[in-house]
Simulated assay, not measured.
Amino acid sequence: MKNLFLLFLVASILTVGMQDATAQSRYRTALGLGIDLGDGPTLVGPQVKHFFDATNAGNAQVLFGNDITILGVDYSYNQAISGANGLSWYVGIGPQLAFIDNGRWWFGDDDWDGNETFFALRPAVGLEFKIPSAPLAFHFDWKPWWNLTNNSDFEPARFSLGFKFTLN
């Protein structure tokens, strides 16, 4: 009887653990549109998010705005919010390259009129909602810009929105 109880307990724990892992990774890959906004220009472009396992994901995007193109990749740790079907939180960071032509907004300097390439790190903290009955997901995050080159600067007032179609 003791062995039967132990077997039942182990099976229950494994079942709950597998359900939790499945709930955290509601999709494997998603394609969509990213919008980056806040202080400075608003940027828009395609993005792809891919889960490597139940909690670890990578996101790549190409964003476009007036006189600027940004290439970026991010790593994120994702965790489902208990009791909120389809809702999860994430935290992450990633490198970004910004190619700027006559981008005076970068320094707030009206006399600067150059073409530059910038390297930045962008931490992110956000929420993502995957509609349980549809192949759609949305995210909102705080994603400050920490420029590490060409007059290093930190811009905390940056956010991103994403609208994604989940593939699997």
Rank of each mutant, 00 (worst) to 15 (best):
P46Q: 10
V48T: 14
A157D: 15
L7K: 14
G34W: 00
D141H: 10
S76Y: 01
V10E: 00
Q96C: 10
W142S: 01
A60L: 15
S160R: 13
N56A: 08
D141L: 04
R122H: 11
F8P: 01
P144Q: 09
L136S: 01
L167C: 00
Q19F: 14
F118S: 09
G103L: 06
K143M: 13
T22H: 14
K143Q: 12
F138W: 08
R26L: 07
G72H: 02
G45V: 05
A60F: 11
A137C: 06
P41E: 14
P135L: 10
V91Y: 06
L148G: 06
L14V: 14
S76C: 05
F51Y: 15
H139L: 06
W89E: 02
W106A: 01
L7H: 10
V16Q: 13
G83Y: 09
W145M: 06
I13F: 15
E116A: 05
L33H: 00
K2E: 06
R158I: 05
M1H: 12
Y77K: 09
N66E: 14
G103N: 04
T166P: 01
L63N: 02
L33F: 11
P123I: 07
L161T: 02
N147H: 02
D101L: 05
R104K: 14
N3L: 10
R28G: 01
V91G: 08
N56R: 08
G108L: 08
S88G: 14
F159K: 04
P135F: 07
L6E: 14
L7G: 10
R104E: 12
I68E: 12
A124K: 11
M18G: 06
T42A: 11
L97S: 06
A124N: 15
A80T: 05
G92K: 02
L14C: 15
A157R: 03
L121I: 12
L7S: 13
Q61T: 05
A124M: 13
A84S: 06
D67T: 04
V73I: 13
N85Q: 14
T55L: 01
D153E: 13
G34Y: 01
S160G: 10
F119W: 05
L121A: 05
N115I: 02
S25M: 11
A11D: 00
Q96S: 08
N150H: 13
G65I: 04
T15R: 07
S76L: 03
G94Y: 09
W145T: 06
L127D: 08
L127M: 12
T149F: 09
V48F: 02
P132N: 08
N78T: 05
K49L: 05
G94W: 05
G94P: 12
I100V: 15
V16T: 15
T117G: 03
D74M: 07
N85R: 15
N85C: 04
L14F: 15
F51M: 12
G17P: 02
L127A: 13
M1F: 12
P95H: 11
V16M: 13
